[in-house]
Amino acid sequence: MDTSLAILKSAKQQSLYDSLIHQLNKDFARAGVDSNFSTEDKPEALARNLVACIYEVIISDFEKYLNLLYAIDVSEARIKEIPAQFVHELAEEVAILILEREFLKVSFKNKHE
Rank of each mutant, 00 (worst) to 15 (best):
48 R>D: 14
57 V>G: 05
33 V>T: 07
101 R>C: 04
9 K>R: 12
45 A>V: 15
80 K>F: 12
85 Q>L: 07
62 F>S: 01
43 P>E: 01
109 K>G: 03
82 I>H: 04
28 F>K: 03
5 L>Y: 00
75 S>E: 10
102 E>T: 06
41 D>M: 12
13 Q>H: 01
49 N>M: 13
9 K>S: 06
62 F>L: 09
67 N>P: 03
106 V>S: 11
104 L>T: 10
86 F>I: 09
82 I>Q: 02
17 Y>A: 02
88 H>Y: 13
20 L>P: 09
26 K>W: 11
69 L>S: 04
93 E>I: 03
12 K>F: 05
113 E>C: 09
53 C>T: 15
34 D>Q: 11
52 A>K: 08
107 S>K: 14
44 E>C: 03
24 L>C: 06
55 Y>I: 01
82 I>V: 11
100 E>I: 04
77 A>E: 14
113 E>P: 11
18 D>K: 06
75 S>I: 11
78 R>H: 12
99 L>M: 03
107 S>Y: 00
29 A>E: 09
29 A>F: 14
84 A>R: 14
5 L>W: 00
86 F>L: 15
27 D>R: 04
35 S>T: 14
31 A>W: 15
66 L>Y: 07
57 V>C: 15
41 D>L: 07
92 E>Q: 02
113 E>T: 12
20 L>R: 12
27 D>I: 06
105 K>F: 15
85 Q>D: 11
56 E>V: 00
104 L>I: 10
88 H>F: 08
65 Y>I: 05
43 P>Q: 09
63 E>W: 03
113 E>V: 13
95 A>R: 05
70 Y>D: 13
41 D>A: 02
54 I>E: 06
32 G>L: 06
95 A>I: 09
97 L>E: 03
33 V>K: 10
36 N>Y: 13
49 N>Y: 11
105 K>E: 09
78 R>W: 09
67 N>W: 02
101 R>F: 08
16 L>F: 05
10 S>A: 14
19 S>D: 11
72 I>L: 05
94 V>C: 02
93 E>H: 10
29 A>W: 06
5 L>E: 03
105 K>I: 13
23 Q>D: 14
57 V>R: 11
65 Y>A: 02
88 H>L: 08
46 L>G: 04
95 A>Y: 01
83 P>S: 13
63 E>Q: 09
54 I>M: 00
77 A>Q: 13
8 L>T: 00
25 N>I: 03
29 A>Q: 14
25 N>E: 08
20 L>I: 08
72 I>Y: 02
29 A>R: 14
8 L>M: 00
35 S>V: 14
73 D>W: 04
97 L>R: 10
11 A>F: 03
14 Q>T: 09
103 F>Q: 00
31 A>M: 10
16 L>I: 01
72 I>G: 04
92 E>N: 06
11 A>Y: 05
98 I>S: 00
112 H>V: 13
9 K>T: 07
5 L>P: 00
